[in-house]
Amino acid sequence: MTEPTTRAKGPASYFPSIEKKYGHPVTHWLDLIRASPLTRHSELVAWLKTEHGLGHGHANALVVHCARQG
């Protein structure tokens, strides 16, 4: 019998679809967020949506994950 696969939880659960849809690894997006002069969650989400074309859920997941990493 095969073992069940471990699924990512929380924001990381979005990462495979983010990479597939936008053609960049998650590290690309996290690096952009870290390099941005913006600091507020809502500003970063809006910036990813308007400047980089990400959907709200994907942008939010990346910003939350980045914030958790410190």
Rank of each mutant, 00 (worst) to 15 (best):
W47F: 13
S13T: 11
H24M: 06
V45W: 01
R34K: 14
L32D: 05
T50K: 11
L32C: 10
A8H: 12
G53T: 07
C66L: 05
V63S: 03
H41S: 13
L38Q: 09
P25H: 06
T27Y: 04
P4V: 04
P37E: 12
G70P: 09
L30N: 07
D31V: 09
V45D: 01
H28F: 15
A12D: 00
C66T: 10
A67K: 15
G23F: 04
E51F: 00
H24I: 00
T27K: 13
K49F: 00
H58W: 07
P25L: 02
A8Y: 11
P11T: 03
V45N: 01
H65P: 00
G53Q: 08
R40A: 13
Q69K: 15
H65D: 09
T39N: 08
K9F: 12
E3A: 15
S36G: 11
H56G: 05
S13W: 02
K21S: 09
E43G: 02
H58L: 06
K49V: 12
E51M: 07
A8E: 15
T39A: 09
L32E: 11
E51L: 04
I18R: 02
A67Q: 15
I18G: 01
T39G: 13
R68E: 12
K20E: 14
F15C: 03
A61F: 05
G57H: 04
A67S: 14
H28A: 11
K9G: 13
A12F: 01
T27S: 14
H65T: 01
E51P: 00
E51I: 02
A35V: 00
S36R: 07
R40M: 05
P4Y: 01
Y14T: 02
L54V: 05
L44G: 01
G10P: 07
T27A: 13
L32S: 06
P11E: 03
G53N: 09
P11H: 04
Y14R: 12
G10F: 08
A61Y: 05
T27F: 02
P25Y: 01
P16C: 11
R40E: 14
H65L: 02
V26Q: 10
H52G: 08
G55W: 00
P25N: 10
E43P: 00
V64W: 03
G53V: 08
W47G: 05
A59H: 11
T2K: 15
H58I: 04
G53D: 12
G57F: 03
C66P: 00
C66G: 03
L48I: 04
M1T: 13
S13L: 02
T5G: 10
T5Y: 09
G10Q: 08
